[in-house]
Design a protein around this nucleic acid. Structure first.
Lengths: 331, 331
DNA sequence: CTGTTAGCGCCTTCAC
DNA sequence: GTGAAGGCGCTAACAG
């Protein structure tokens, strides 16, 4: 195995460990050319690689951040991860990705594990259920950035879609097109922030646009059960349009539609928050409200690395990203 | 910050560090109930959390593995990662995911970084370009498992799709349906193994089934340029069926098809290696050869953790997974 | 310019 | 049953 240590290099090159350390950390201002070359050769000869665990222990910095997503199977998460990675990579930071599955227990466990591992900071899609934990991180001044969701009562920088705007775009577009009985469907879990906000805005807009005020038009259930709910919904209410809360919900709705020979948009109009790879390929092409996932991921990474480097805190910790309306033909 | 160390707990509880260490590692066979309780309280009181960097340094094990995928934007990668994560999580292992982007330089950099970080093992989708590096890992007996691709000359456990079978399924199905001019399109890069194997099998089958023997029917280009190639292909050859090598290639082909009002399967038949979320939703539903991504990811994780735990090496290091033929209506 | 000396936080014999 | 001591590999003053 790679048991070559700094001490080995030192003896091989005939200098002391600290000189090697200097060299490795590129602090060769005060180093003679000759020793520099000797060290270089020794390193090559021995195939030495510094042990970053040891360095981390000493420096109290691991050059690694943790990312806890709700579910990596969402296209949104994937894209966000990708852009966080790209950004971090360019700054020589590493990323550890974890799936909390919107499970508070898993989230807690991961946050603990990651902190035990001394990661320098965390980007998390919070479940919202571990308030004490979040608070503790605030109190101890641990670098954290929330993504996709925020916890209103907590002063933690958050990178978010402007959900109010997204729902507004969807509802207003549908209303303009003449739809009157609009339903909102997602698979989001309960306490999660965007769902709450989306529901709030949806209700407000229902009043403004004189849509039916009826909780029955708002359904959120776990993936795999949405189809069933949709069946019940269509059987009981004169729904003529649906807003899908994300890609996974959209997929379920589309499957139902297919199985029941529903014609879009004639029998049912559809609009989705989150674009999907096949949005323009579907028949009819899907009208969609896209999230700028790459930009959001990058922003979160920038914020976090900024905090880690001790940049001054901004007063306004909420970064709202505007949704992008893509009109196609499903409503 | 969380500066509470073992020493703090020790003084607080009135015992020595080593006793705390015993406790933390659950070796309380020879510990009095009273000290056990005192320690427990001290830990809770001080909110102590063991520093795993320090532990790793001492124990030479980080309980972390690295995964280097070719591109996280492939659905296949996502699913594989997900299942690796699930498996590792259940064994209290962490996963660091990196995107090599099929870029040998990036791959090398990541392998180095990960090893410097002392990860206990690696699962990699090898680019195939860093032979010396791979060899060095073999030589130093570093736990590695290859996924999706293998390097024929290297004795490294590899988890693979049975590509021969996959191509065979595709070609034979198309031949049965009466197609005579079949093209193979992927965005895979050059030296990558599955591409080579697929091409080889494709050529063999071309002979067997008396299809045109013509390199022009085999195209692999970067994502974003496949559409262009497809245009050229259709202009120059009487292609009546295409095999898409993966989801991203499929998407490009589908976009081209849409833009040019090509009717599937009448004008052009299509079959894809890799299922996609919208496979059954597309019009017509897409006939597909699926990879068992979750099973493959799990297998790779099992193999790697097995190696890490020093399980005896198996003689046969190739794990071939059978593709699943899903007949729908695109050919 | 380079070496010496302390640790970083934890684990592990081996005494007591 | 518990403590003392040494060391994992590296860094950071401070000497020289």
């Amino acid at each position: 195995m790679n048991k070559v240590t700094m001490a080995d290099v030192a003896t091989y090159a005939g200098v002391s460990k600290s000189t090697i350390s200097q060299y490795v950390n590129k602090r060769y201002k005060f180093m003679s050319e000759s020793t520099k070359i000797r060290i270089e050769e020794a390193i090559k000869e021995l195939n030495y690689r510094p042990n970053s665990v040891a360095r981390s222990l000493k420096q109290k910095s691991t050059f690694t951040i943790g990312v806890i997503v709700s579910n990596i199977l969402h296209a949104f998460s994937t894209q966000v991860i990708r852009s966080i990675e790209d950004y971090c990579h360019s700054l020589d930071f590493h990323v550890i990705v974890c799936n909390a599955d919107d499970n508070p227990k898993k989230e807690e466990r991961y946050i603990q594990m990651l902190r035990d591992k001394q990661v320098d900071g965390l980007i998390v899609f919070p479940t919202g259920e571990n308030l004490e934990l979040y608070e503790e991180m605030v109190k101890t001044n641990y670098p954290v950035v929330f993504l996709d969701r925020r916890i209103p009562e907590l002063p933690i920088s958050s990178v978010l879609l402007d959900n109010e705007q997204a729902v507004k775009m969807a509802v207003e577009h549908l209303v303009e097109k003449g739809y009157k009985n609009i339903a909102l469907m997602t698979n989001a879990i309960h306490r999660v922030y965007p769902r709450q906000e989306r529901v709030r805005v949806f209700k407000e807009l229902s009043i403004v646009h004189q849509l039916p005020i009826d909780e029955g038009y708002i359904v959120s259930r776990e993936i795999g059960q949405l189809k069933e709910s949709l069946g019940a919904l269509l059987a009981n209410k004169p729904v003529d349009a649906i807003i899908a809360g994300n890609d996974l919900a959209l997929l379920e709705i589309l499957n139902y539609v297919k199985e029941h020979d529903i014609e879009i948009p004639k029998d049912l109009a559809l609009i989705s928050i989150d674009d999907v790879s096949f949005g323009n390929l579907y028949n009819p092409p899907l009208t969609v409200i896209a999230q700028p996932a790459f930009e959001m991921g990058k922003k979160a990474a920038e914020l976090l690395l900024g905090k880690i480097n001790g940049d001054l805190e901004e007063k306004e910790p909420i970064y709202l990203f505007q949704p992008v309306f893509i009109e196609r033909a499903s409503c």
